[in-house]
Design a protein around this nucleic acid. Structure first.
Length: 719
DNA sequence: ATTGAGAGCCAC
DNA sequence: AAACGTGGCTCTCAAT
């Protein structure tokens, strides 16, 4: 869509507006004459309609415009004014407002917003940059997909000089503009200069886009989006405009509302409009940073953590995302066909038994299943409801089998190959370094979440030729964190002596000698779940579902645990007390908070609330996430160092909470593995609790090869 | 056709 | 005495 703008008629604008009003009045009069219903009456009728209630804000805008005479009825409108017509008029009104707004923007560009479209101006800008310590940068693009879209212009704010420049390079316009290659070449030394500080909002996006143009951005000092996640993880939106409106009281329209949802910025043909919009982002990003820095200064530990861990992590994560994933398409095809055949077979058999229903519809499935089994089902939840009935009814066993296969096929095996990028042949995902409110990563955005790939799907992820994946899994990361926080002597001793934690817990909780609680015993696996329940703040309901026992027994296990580990119990209670009093809890070394304001309110009426379990869980989960993040930055340094040694490229590959993977040349040595392990184990330690990590090689992710096995096989192949 | 809520289920 | 953490994707189903 091209934007229709007429900026030539500045002087005639008033006349135009007057003419518009006159025209509207005339049409309104014509229409009223046609059906003789006064506007007041028509609106009185519409306001009683359901449509009005559903679209009140829009309707009110139309109503106001009609009563003020700005807006009349539709062209050629006949008969009674209807709610449907009012809604159509809203669209017309919104479009008018939009065009008016764009005109205003173009006409009221501040003097310190520079449109740079010739070499002399760009040179002048670079001279200003030579004197700057810190700049804001932002790239405008054809869209929001970093793997597909391209840069169409650069925003640079020179903070000291208070100059906000927009350098368009690929706008579809008759206006002259500089060539992108020339601009990139000119700005590259500034973008890549680590001692010229850079601010941005969602810098990872711009880092990716610049990388596409061969620029390795360095010197990032502040990201206003990530900073906001430090200041308030409960913020409803982390987009620049809502934040600026909320905290700086600077109004700004959303991109979609100004330019349309699927409009690339290159389609903005009026460069004054482009300047007004783009340069403002640079301007407000700097203001937002100043605001955030002032507030974070009150929490020096958070500020220190933010600048030393979160900010460098942005570059680390961008590097990791750029690595991408090789997907074994052949294998996916074969394996997919196999699963599909199994799904079809099971489907046919199930339809025979249950009738012609949609097995994926819980609403249809529940009654059909009840009829076939004679059971009364609470839901069709596989884990909770169906699994316990699996042995009793073969149809349920079959259905569970079907569900497993269907999920595996539709979400993973069949879906992954579809998501491979045609340009590079790799699969990409987005990692959000503060996607979870606890500070954990989330992943997804392009249809693939790398953090919930089942083992069977991980087999599709292969190392490229000449490379192998090296993975490290922190052993019991969150429980070590729990031991550290609580300082429970039994837990601490367990980790200091390197004993089997689950066996120790089983022995305590079930009062059995440790010999009966070793690997593979039910006691041990149940102890594992109990520990999980404790760390996640789970109660008896969660535990009973997890191990398939009744609630009473689950409660007994929990009681036993807390009786045997009273220090853990005390620590959990302290967290609850703390959150009740303050409305938040701290992560490890006060690096960040988890704000749970409901805890303060709820305490007034004495009800137990989810925030109490969250208060313990957030501390454990959030502190573990800090360990992962600090270590990731070190792993990135290790990769850079190893790559610089010249024996092939090392790259960060993926992170899944307590698991970090790197892609390394298959010529990797035992000494290299030792260095990787050192980084995993020694970068971030929870006080007196040592870390441990399980290392494995993968040709296919999920099919582990032990370190010994790898090097022994190597020897035989080399010889 | 597109959108949003809810159910369900994958991971740690 | 109670009580169950953090995400994202696919599917259905109903509403535009």
């Amino acid at each position: 869509m091209q934007l229709r703008l007429n900026l030539a008629g500045e002087q005639t604008e008033n006349n135009e507006a007057e003419a518009k009003v006159a025209d509207a009045r005339k049409r309104q009069a014509d229409a009223q004459e046609a059906n003789a219903e006064p506007l007041e009456e028509a609106w009185g009728r519409i306001m009683r309609s359901k449509s009005y209630a559903n679209n009140q804000a829009k309707m009110d805008a139309v109503k106001q415009a009609m009563f003020s005479g700005e807006l009349g009825r539709e062209d050629g409108a006949k008969g009674k004014f209807s709610a449907a017509e009012a809604l159509r008029l809203y669209k017309y009104l919104a479009e008018q407002k939009r065009e008016e707004r764009l005109r205003d923007m173009a006409e009221s560009v501040p003097d310190n917003y520079w449109l740079v479209t010739d070499e002399a101006s760009l040179t002048e800008l670079t001279h200003i940059l030579d004197d700057e310590k810190e700049i804001v940068f932002d790239v405008e693009t054809t869209g929001v997909n970093v793997w597909r879209d391209r840069i169409v212009g650069h925003v640079i704010t020179a903070i000291q000089a208070d100059i906000h420049a927009y350098i368009p390079t690929k706008h579809k316009t008759d206006h002259p503009q500089l060539d992108n290659e020339y601009v990139v070449k000119t700005l590259k030394p500034y973008y890549e200069n680590p001692s010229l500080g850079k601010l941005a909002h969602n810098a990872k996006y711009d880092i990716h886009m610049l990388d596409r143009d061969g620029v390795d951005l360095r010197g990032l000092t502040w990201d206003t989006q990530e900073a906001m996640r430090m200041l308030n993880e409960n913020e409803p939106s982390f987009a620049l405009k809502p934040l600026v409106t909320k905290y700086l009281d600077i109004q700004s329209e959303k991109y979609d509302e100004l330019f349309g949802k699927n409009t690339g910025f290159d389609e903005v043909d009026d460069l004054q409009v482009a300047l007004a919009y783009a340069a403002k982002d640079g301007d407000v990003t700097r203001k937002l940073r100043d605001f955030q820095r002032e507030h974070l200064a009150r929490f020096p530990d958070i500020l220190e953590y933010y600048t030393s861990v979160e900010v460098p992590l942005i570059h680390t994560v961008a590097q990791m995302e750029m690595t991408g994933f090789d997907i074994d398409l052949e294998y996916a095809k074969e394996y997919g066909a196999e699963i599909k055949a199994e799904i079809d077979r099971l489907y046919a058999e199930l339809i025979d038994e249950l009738g012609d229903i949609n097995l994926n519809s819980p609403a249809q499935l529940k009654p059909a299943l009840e009829a076939a089994t004679g059971e009364t089902l609470e839901s069709t939840d596989a884990k909770k409801v169906l699994k316990p009935l699996k042995k009793k009814h073969s149809v349920i066993a079959k259905l569970l089998d079907y569900k497993d296969n269907f999920k595996l096929y539709s979400t993973y095996i069949n879906a992954l190959p579809e998501l491979v990028d045609e340009r590079t042949g790799k699969l990409y995902t987005n990692f959000n370094q503060n996607g979870a409110k606890t500070g954990r990563f989330s992943s997804g955005g392009s249809g693939v979440n790398l953090q919930n790939q089942p083992k069977k799907a991980r087999k599709l992820f292969t190392a490229p030729k000449g490379y192998v994946i090296l993975g490290g899994d922190w052993s019991q990361q969150e429980y070590r964190c729990l031991a550290y926080f609580s300082q429970d002597p039994k837990l601490v001793e367990n980790y200091e002596k390197g004993h089997d934690l689950y066996a120790s817990i089983a022995s305590e909780v079930f009062e059995k000698p440790i010999e009966e609680c070793g690997d593979g015993t039910t006691y041990r696996s149940q102890a594992k779940v109990i520990m999980l329940a404790v760390a996640y703040g789970g109660g008896p309901n969660m535990l009973k579902d997890a191990i398939g026992i009744d609630k009473k027994e689950a409660q007994k296990f929990l009681d036993n645990f807390f009786e045997r580990f009273p220090v853990v119990k005390q620590w959990v209670e302290e967290n609850q007390k703390y959150v009740k009093k303050h409305g938040y809890v701290w992560m490890d070394r006060n690096q960040r908070k988890r704000r749970l304001p409901d805890a303060k309110d709820r305490s007034a009426n004495g009800h137990y609330s989810a925030v109490f379990t969250q208060s313990t869980n957030a501390r454990v989960q959030g502190s573990a996430a800090i360990q992962t993040k600090v270590t990731m930055n070190e792993l990135q340094s290790l990769c850079d160092r190893k790559t610089a040694e010249g024996n092939g490229e090392w790259r960060l590959y993926c992170v899944v909470h307590d698991e970090a993977l790197v892609l390394v040349p298959e010529t990797i040595t035992r000494q290299d593995v030792k260095e990787f392990e050192d980084v995993m184990v020694n970068t971030y330690i929870f006080g007196n609790i040592p870390n441990a990590t399980d290392l494995e090689f993968y040709r296919r992710w999920g099919v582990g090869i032990s370190i010994e096995e790898w090097f022994n096989d190597k020897k035989t192949t080399v010889n």
